[in-house]
């Protein structure tokens, strides 16, 4: 969890939850094997069949804008994506990602120079992304969110501790 290395899938600005998982699917099932077949469908219809385990999504600003649907980060995680790096995130998507155990990182500087197929290495504890010969820094993830992430998301976190870290 501390160091994640993977192949990049690059997306643009304002990737909405409607593009990540169209609303029409989420009302019919909560079976993620089914839902994940439509992951990122609105932005790249073949995405779920091309992506492999450990890949990293790199995107522009306002990633995950739109609805509060938690299905959005879940399908991304379910197809094997290990992290999302973006210039900025919509706030509900940001919260949801930690809650379901998907690391997301705001790193405005990295995004422009990178393209699909590149490899990046995310060092969460150091707040650093390595791409080729360059290193880009980002604001480290707040400690209590890191705890939730390390526990594997909010459900596992509660199971493990019998309460929530912010109540302590």
């Amino acid at each position: 969890m501390q160091v994640l290395k993977g192949k990049v899938w690059k997306f643009g600005d304002d990737i909405s939850t409607d593009l990540i998982i169209p609303g029409k699917y989420k009302f019919k099932t909560i079976d993620f094997n089914e839902l994940a077949r439509h992951a990122m469908e609105g932005a790249d219809p073949q995405f779920s069949s091309k992506v492999s385990k450990g890949d990293i999504i790199v995107a522009g600003k306002n990633f995950g804008c739109g609805s509060s649907r938690e299905q959005a980060p879940v399908v991304i995680k379910h197809v094997g994506v290990s992290a999302v790096v973006a210039k900025s995130f919509a706030r509900i998507f940001y919260r949801n990602s930690f809650n379901i155990g998907l690391p997301v990182v705001e790193c405005p500087d990295l995004v422009d120079g990178i393209k699909t197929g590149d490899t990046v290495e995310l060092r969460l504890a150091e707040g650093e992304v390595l791409a080729g010969t360059r290193a880009y820094s980002f604001k480290p993830i707040p400690p209590f969110l890191m705890t939730i992430l390390q526990d594997g998301g909010l459900v596992e976190h509660f199971k493990k501790r019998g309460g929530f870290v912010w109540e302590e």
Binding site: S68, R69, I92, R95, N96, N99, I100, L154, V155, F158
Partner: peptide, 14 residues
């Protein structure tokens, strides 16, 4: 908020 946050609220009220 998202669903899992909501589950935390339903459980704890905070």
């Amino acid at each position: 908020i998202g669903s899992t946050d909501m589950a935390a609220v339903f459980a704890s009220g905070k």
